[in-house]
Design a protein around this nucleic acid. Structure first.
Ligand SMILES: [Mn+2]
Ligand SMILES: [Mn+2]
Ligand SMILES: [Mn+2]
Ligand SMILES: [Mn+2]
Lengths: 220, 220
DNA sequence: ATATAATTTTAGACAAAGCTAAAAAATTGT
DNA sequence: ACAATTTTTTAGCTTTGTCTAAAATTATAT
């Protein structure tokens, strides 16, 4: 598999991660920052290799084979991110671009030994799960703050948007994975949410609330 | 710079490392496992970018700019080799192929942090020096066993051939970097050499003797 | 000195991955 | 229902890096 094919497979995976339907050519083009005509060309090649299911004008979806390829690249990407943060002291907003390259290094031994070196981590620095060798991973039950009712309490376990801009914003506002939050108030007008943190309560915009995942702590 | 350009630059560097003359098209083709016509095409492109000095039919040599590019790739290659051996427990005969890929990852921050993480090593697992950021490195005074007279004594500090086959041979025969050897006898007939090691004396073939470097311990 | 051999370059082709412009199909609005 | 719009595909072109076959140049050997 070429680097480019791998990036397309990963893009298709992420675009169908939640809705599970077939993915539109234009959506892939936007994700990959290419033109729709280039996407069509690549899709044909991937279909030829049975990595995707494709019918002209009907969008595309990953085959089981393609899904496993996607998960193996995602596994590598996330393990490298853990390495960069835990071992090389990168901050969590810098690692994505580098992992984007490292994920394409081809060596099973390398990724096995890296996994062991890191202590077999289950999640990456952004709270995303790391699939095992067979593409198996546990999708934890986590909810966006924007989906939760007043009174909910939970541990911040992940980000929806992992852009450097958002991650830096969180750092600046002293919001980190592992923090416990409680939803105190939801403002009807603009969707902003007041949450309690260790250091008092803060108000976050709707945009922030739709990009932070909490793992709910059952209220007894 | 593309991956391919980088590999050509590195190949030219290694081919002119010792003789310093200009490098032949055929030699590059052999090293790169391509055809001479492909080499000519690439040389033109590199000349266009002022990375090499080139005159038709007269061979090629690296420009100062090209030399610095070569050294930065070699720096990355060797640092990754140290990482693979020291941190991931690869054996020294497995690391070259993986480093061949890792050397092309583009991130100055990555290589700086890796260097620090490894404790700023000066040599790679095969005893080869690691250039610093500016391409500066100390070429230690080391000699091949085959170049030394009877009575010489020194510490084994490097290999000339770093193929997996040779390195595995050394492991099997309990020869490792850091060992102290003394040359006891040189057989005129076939060039084989008898050396003393910690565990007694052994006879090595001429081929082995031309691929092991010793750093001489001055005999007082 | 010159024929033969070896090396190097050129010419022309191909596959991968991208682009633009135009055509085809699907979707949407009235 | 059907015209307008959007989406998707096709056609044709470009760049990068490779190849084979043929031509040009340089080296070698008698
Ligand atoms: Mn990538
Ligand atoms: Mn991540
Ligand atoms: Mn390489
Ligand atoms: Mn080495």
């Amino acid at each position: 598999m070429t680097l480019s094919e791998e990036d397309y497979i990963k893009a298709i995976y992420h675009l169908s991660e939640f809705n599970s339907k077939s993915v539109a050519t234009n959506a892939i083009a936007e994700q990959m920052k290419t033109k729709p005509s280039s996407v069509t060309d690549m899709i044909k090649k991937l279909a030829e290799k049975s990595l995707v299911n494709y019918k002209k004008y009907q969008g595309v979806s990953l085959s089981e084979k393609g899904r496993l390829v996607a998960l193996s690249i995602i596994r590598k990407h996330r393990l490298w991110e853990v390495f960069l943060v835990d071992k090389l002291n990168f901050s969590w907003d810098e690692v994505h671009v580098v992992a984007e390259q490292l994920e394409h290094i081809k060596s099973d031994a390398l990724i096995d030994k890296l996994d062991a070196h890191l202590g077999f981590p289950k999640v990456d620095p952004h709270g995303d799960p790391i699939p095992n060798k067979d593409g198996v991973f546990t999708k934890s039950v986590k909810k966006l703050i924007s989906e939760l009712p007043v009174g909910s309490q939970g541990v911040c376990v992940g980000v929806n948007d992992s852009s450097a801009a958002f991650l830096k914003f969180l750092d600046k506002n002293k919001i980190a994975l592992g923090d416990t939050f409680k939803i105190l108030e939801i403002e009807e007008f603009d969707g902003s949410v007041t949450i309690s943190t260790r250091s008092g309560s803060i108000r976050i915009s709707k945009q922030i609330a739709t990009n932070l995942f909490l793992e709910i702590v059952d209220e007894e």
